[in-house]
Amino acid sequence: MRNFYKRWQGELKRAFTGTPDATPDWVLRLADGDDNGYYLPGSAVWAVHGSMSTIVAGIRALLMQTLHPGALAGVNDHSRFRADPLGRLAGTIRWVFTVSYGSTAAAHSASDWVTRLHQHVHGEYMDRSGRSRRYAANDPELLLWVHITFTDAFLSAHKLWGGRIPGGPDAYVSEWARAGLLMGVESPPMTEKDMRQQLERWYDDGELVADERVKEAVSFIRNPPLHPLLRPGYHLLFAAAVMSLEPKYRKLLGLKTPTLGPLPLPIKAATRAALVLVRIALGRVSPSEKAARKRLRRIAGLNMRR
């Protein structure tokens, strides 16, 4: 049993960092830098991004993002997510944690790197009316869509499986707006209500599409090529992400909450238990947060000696 746990723990770490044991160099470098960064201990961002609910949030964000045909076309045409889904996941985690825990210079550097990658992501897609339209990953509208679906997913999952958010949901939305600005988002929402209203605009205007390409993407997200040890847990987390969606988006995606006959399965409680196990396996405090705290202590010590 101990060997099984060690193997499972190793594969879990590999899925998130690319390695089963060593801490990635980019995480260690979060201890570098000469300022506090954009977020500090006690911030809403540290509370939400330090929670295991982010795992469910990541799946929910991917599901929502498939609904915008421009965003999905960019992923299908240019992303390596099918050939190397864990590599793409690790890249996204690196950006999120660098902005959340790194110095301001590190946050800008990581965001600039992603923006440069996006410069080559452009092409055409068919909108809901059948017209051909051009897309570009750095287009303000697509950047806003990705930012809002990310923010909405992380906030919604944290409400279900996380703890208290300092300052409440509006604090998280307004704080993470800085990350949107770093990526080129124009006027990101600053309150939960504003964020929801902008999501509603895309839905009401008929911008969101559920076609065969969406079905293919959802099928892949449901069954990615994970190590066999991780698949049972992932299927539970996928069900949790589906459960967390608003019913109209769930219907648009062609997804349903799992049931046993007429009775809904206890997905929320089972997910809470699963996330506790993941927390034990990965550690109570993430290596990224530890590195950030190391930088903050060093800076505080320098300021005291001045």
Rank of each mutant, 00 (worst) to 15 (best):
W8C: 03
L117G: 11
Y203P: 00
P224D: 00
A300S: 07
H147C: 02
K256F: 13
K193D: 12
L302F: 11
L142R: 11
S219Y: 08
L63C: 02
E11F: 08
D127S: 09
A270I: 02
A210R: 03
G163K: 04
R305L: 07
L252M: 11
L255I: 14
T115M: 12
A57Q: 06
G167I: 07
V173P: 03
K256H: 14
V146S: 05
P20F: 05
L72C: 03
H122N: 09
V278H: 10
F4A: 10
V45P: 13
E11K: 02
T149F: 06
T19G: 05
P24E: 05
H158S: 09
Q198W: 12
A157V: 01
P266S: 15
L302P: 14
R250A: 08
A136T: 04
V242E: 06
L245T: 06
G123M: 11
A269I: 09
H120W: 11
A137G: 00
R128F: 07
H68R: 01
L30S: 01
L253M: 15
R284I: 13
V242P: 00
E124M: 04
V218W: 05
M195T: 05
F150W: 14
R131K: 10
L296Y: 12
L40C: 08
V48I: 14
A71N: 00
T23R: 14
Y101F: 15
M243G: 12
S187L: 08
G58C: 02
I221A: 04
K294T: 10
R133V: 15
W202A: 10
G91S: 09
R231K: 13
L160Y: 00
S156W: 06
K268C: 08
V56H: 04
E124I: 12
R60I: 04
D35H: 07
Q9N: 15
I93M: 11
P166N: 02
L144C: 13
R88I: 05
R298L: 12
L155F: 11
D35L: 00
R293G: 07
M64C: 02
I148A: 11
R297P: 08
N36I: 08
I59E: 02
L253A: 12
A269L: 10
A90S: 15
E207D: 13
Y125C: 05
A71M: 08
